[in-house]
């Protein structure tokens, strides 16, 4: 009943016969990154919009933005994943719902996963964007108005360029979160890195080797992202501004 370690397992062929187990894991990593990046684009765009409208003078727009953030922050990611995957297509017209469900794999699970992660993370990005804008001195907006800029112009040319720079560090951790959170997509059938490790375990029975490899890959990706973002932060840093201390827990 000893555990039989076999580190050579990574170079063995999988039952599919298409490559080694290491190859399976790397394909998994590719899907992790693809899911995370695609979702990140949605999260940034949507999060910026929601974050901005929460700071506008319009009361109802701010309420709408707050409502969005509360809705997406207070439902577990896994439940949201199930809602996108199982429930959402049922509320569409039948032909459309069927078309979504019958997309060839992996798209039928990849698309809901990206939408889910994107909208979920957008709520968190929105929170950072709001905090970033509010951290700016009020005089900046007034200066914009004094210069004759319209409200959208003030945001575009005055507030957002600085706000985004100072919230880079918290955005980095949100990006790291989205990479980790993409593992939840395995529950709806995306074969990302964790799922690939699980599949490797099922076929090779080498549980701990599979999970060790996945862990190492996650750590390496993590470190890589941290270094890349640090470099970016240095390049775009505005002297005299530091990031606002928005405390949001998360994983």
């Amino acid at each position: 009943m000893n555990y039989h370690w076999n580190w050579k397992i990574f170079w063995q062929l999988t039952p599919e016969g298409t490559g080694t187990y290491l190859h399976t894991l790397l394909v998994g990593l590719m899907w992790t990154l693809a899911t995370a990046l695609a979702a990140w684009i949605i999260a940034l765009v949507l999060g910026a919009i929601v974050g901005v409208i929460r700071t506008t003078p319009s009361k109802w727009a701010a309420r709408l933005g707050n409502g969005y953030v509360e809705l997406f922050r207070n439902i577990p990611l896994l439940v949201q994943m199930f809602l996108w995957y199982f429930v959402f297509p049922e509320f569409l017209p039948k032909a459309m719902g069927d078309a979504i469900k019958q997309m060839p794999p992996p798209w039928a699970s990849f698309v809901p996963a990206v939408l889910c992660l994107g909208t979920f993370t957008a709520a968190r990005v929105a929170e950072q964007v709001r905090a970033g804008i509010q951290a700016l001195p009020r005089g900046q907006q007034m200066a914009g108005t004094a210069l004759g800029l319209t409200l959208p112009q003030t945001y575009r040319y005055v507030l957002l360029p600085v706000a985004f720079r100072i919230i880079l560090p918290p955005l980095t951790s949100e990006f790291l979160n989205i990479i980790k959170n993409s593992s939840v997509a395995l529950t709806i059938g995306v074969i990302e890195l964790t799922a690939a490790a699980r599949a490797m375990q099922e076929f090779s029975f080498q549980v701990f080797e599979a999970f060790t490899a996945a862990t190492i890959i996650y750590v390496v990706v993590n470190v890589g992202v941290v270094f890349a973002m640090r470099w970016l932060e240095k390049r775009v840093a505005v002297p005299g501004f530091i990031g606002p201390a928005v405390q949001g827990g998360g994983h």
Binding site: P15, E16, G17, A108, T187, G189, I191, A199
Partner: peptide
Amino acid sequence: IKALNELNTADKMGINILSAN
């Protein structure tokens, strides 16, 4: 699912394989 994978490789079936929990 293993048999399905093998079928796919051996006979070039081009099956899209999904896995469920």
